[in-house]
Computed example of a mutant assay.
Amino acid sequence: MALTGDDKDECIEVTIHGVRHFLHSTTARELSNMLIARIEEWNLIVRAGGAPGV
């Protein structure tokens, strides 16, 4: 993850498996919100099974 420079139209750079993705800040925020929601859902499932969450 990195902030982009002035030469890019988007604000956030995310590299996944060597592929760079450029996201607008509002898109990055929504992606973050969605990931947090799924992680919280996952934690409920694994904690019910006795495993620690993440």
Rank of each mutant, 00 (worst) to 15 (best):
A48E: 01
H24F: 12
E40S: 11
V46C: 02
G50P: 01
E30I: 07
E41A: 14
G18L: 06
L31R: 02
E41S: 10
G50K: 01
G53Q: 03
R47S: 01
A48F: 01
I12K: 04
I12T: 04
E13S: 13
W42M: 07
G18A: 06
I39A: 10
A37K: 13
E40Y: 06
I36L: 09
E41G: 05
E13C: 13
E30D: 13
G53A: 03
S25A: 14
E10H: 11
H17M: 11
S32P: 02
T4M: 03
A2E: 14
R29H: 13
D6A: 14
H21Q: 09
N43G: 00
I36F: 07
G53R: 00
V54S: 09
H17E: 14
K8Y: 15
F22V: 01
A2K: 14
F22D: 02
A2L: 11
T26M: 11
L31Y: 03
E30A: 11
K8D: 14
W42C: 06
I39W: 05
L31I: 09
G50V: 00
E40N: 14
I45G: 00
H24C: 10
E10M: 10
A28D: 03
E13Q: 15
M34C: 10
H21I: 05
F22H: 05
E13W: 04
A48T: 02
E30M: 12
R47Q: 06
H24L: 09
I16K: 04
T27D: 13
C11I: 11
L3E: 12
I36S: 06
G5H: 03
L44D: 11
G5W: 04
M34F: 07
V54E: 08
M1T: 08
L3K: 13
C11E: 14
M1S: 12
